Simulated assay, not measured.
Amino acid sequence: MISYAPFYKTLLSKGITEYQLIFRHGFSANILHRMKHGEAISTKTLDTLCFILNCQVGEILEYVAET
């Protein structure tokens, strides 16, 4: 299972809010909603987030084995 927990830690550490992603960077609120609910996002979206946050993919998502 893919977890987006690192994404929220990265936002916090960089001092960026979801509001700023949406209104300053034009990021889709729908994508943030999908991430909050653990749904799939595209590699293009990952690329955009890495660019905006100046981070690596591992700072946005992680694989968590299902038990």
Rank of each mutant, 00 (worst) to 15 (best):
F23Y: 15
Y63E: 06
H37E: 02
E62G: 03
I60Y: 00
F23T: 07
A40P: 00
V57S: 04
E62H: 00
M35T: 11
Q56I: 06
L11H: 04
I60P: 00
Y19A: 04
F23S: 06
I2N: 13
E66S: 14
L49Y: 01
Q56R: 14
Y8A: 02
R24M: 08
F7T: 03
N30E: 14
F7H: 06
G15E: 12
L46G: 02
I60L: 09
T67M: 06
L21I: 05
A40I: 01
I22A: 02
T45N: 14
F23P: 00
K36F: 06
L49V: 06
L32K: 10
N54A: 13
T67S: 14
Q56F: 09
Q20K: 11
K44Y: 06
I52R: 08
A40G: 01
Y8E: 01
M1R: 10
K44P: 00
I2A: 09
S13Q: 14
Y8S: 02
L12Q: 15
T10R: 09
K9S: 14
P6M: 06
R34W: 06
F23A: 03
L21S: 02
C55F: 04
L53S: 12
L46D: 07
G15L: 13
Q20M: 08
D47L: 15
M1N: 08
Y19H: 13
I16T: 09
K36V: 07
L53Y: 13
V57E: 12
T45E: 13
R24D: 15
N54D: 15
C50D: 05
E39D: 13
H25L: 04
V64Q: 07
A29W: 06
K36P: 05
T17R: 04
E18T: 11
Q56N: 13
K36H: 14
F27D: 05
L12C: 04
V57C: 05
Y8N: 01
E59G: 07
H33P: 00
E66M: 12
K44E: 14
N54T: 11
N30Y: 11
Y8T: 00
L32Q: 10
H37Y: 13
C50N: 08
L53N: 08
L21A: 02
T17Y: 05
Y8P: 03
L12F: 02
K9C: 07
R24K: 15
S13K: 15
P6S: 12
L12Y: 10
E59A: 12
H25A: 04
N54V: 10
Y8F: 11
I2L: 15
A29G: 13
T43G: 04
Q20P: 01
G26F: 11
T67G: 14
C50T: 10
I31M: 11
F23E: 01
A29T: 10
T43S: 12
Y8M: 04
K9V: 07
H37T: 14
V57W: 01
K36Q: 13
